[in-house]
Design a protein around this nucleic acid. Structure first.
Lengths: 157, 157
DNA sequence: CAGGGTTCAATTGTCCACAACAAGATTGAG
DNA sequence: CTCAATCTTGTTGTGGACAATTGAACCCTG
């Protein structure tokens, strides 16, 4: 009954819960900032990837964003309906669908430039910490995905 | 076109994306670990809260987990159907629904005790970093939610 | 060229997340 | 007491996420 007793199941001690809560809180903040652009946060991520790389296959987007086709397919259809992207089946390989920007989609980048600044400000993120935090989080993502790949591999062999 | 040019919209520079990806990766890891218990990750969070506090109203769960009733209501119905929790309308105040554990739900705690260890191991999370990471993330969540509350308040007045 | 294995995108089904709204219960001002 | 704000929970609608499956296209080997 010591007040310092450590409960491994205590919510307050769980890194994953903190991550989960912080991720949803920031996504909620993006929801407001992206309202003007008519984008949801995952849609915004797709636009970021396209602004950066120009054109990507669904597979390429999947790799960059760590999202699978079950998530991307309907999301991309909505972006196409909204006039932000184009979907064209590749001539070289008819299996792949190339995702590109429309003029409207490309123009949205200008309006998005201010968003990261607004966000960092609203979330009061310590400027120096951001870089380090990103590298720690990316390290966790890599570890987890490697572990998952190993298990998938081991299950086969 | 210096190689060090800083693009504020580059995916790699975005804390929120790292957070989002890490959160989903860890949730996926939990998906495997929780398979035996028949719980999803959000359901597991509800169980954690109940194991810790014994009994909570829907409102209490909402406050602890930062989830709203639109998420909790169907989730709690599924947990009730699975025989893990009970839902009883409070006699003192008929508006509130008290969520409690069944014998089965309480017994699941034993089987959950090993999960945090397995997770930290699989994710290769540096033990020392976890504490600090949690506090940074919780700080972000608080900042964002305070900012949201201020805006809601300002919009009213 | 034929057939088997692989890759890619899309679909289906289940569950989560949240805004907006609905409805009953409670509380408080008069 | 009465009626209007408030509180609590629930529902509906939209959009994510992901496992599992499907089906077309590709590639390779014989």
């Amino acid at each position: 009954m010591a007040e310092t007793e450590y409960d491994p199941l205590a919510l307050d001690n769980q890194l994953c819960f903190s991550l989960y809560a912080a991720s949803r809180a920031l996504t909620g903040l993006y929801r407001e900032l992206l309202g003007d652009l008519g984008l949801t946060y995952p849609q915004y991520l797709v636009m970021l990837a396209l602004w950066e790389h120009g054109t990507l296959s669904v597979k390429g987007l999947s790799r960059v964003l760590h999202l699978d086709s079950g998530t991307l397919s309907p999301l991309l259809r909505r972006l196409e309906t909204a006039g932000a992207i184009t979907r064209t089946r590749s001539a070289a390989d008819e299996r792949v669908v190339e995702i590109g920007l429309t003029g409207h989609g490309a123009a949205m980048r200008e309006r998005a430039l201010g968003i990261p600044g607004q966000l960092v400000c609203a979330a009061e993120i310590p400027a120096g910490d951001a870089r380090e935090l990103i590298s720690v989080l990316d390290g966790i993502t890599r570890s987890v995905e490697r572990a998952a790949a190993r298990r998938a591999c081991g299950a086969q062999g």
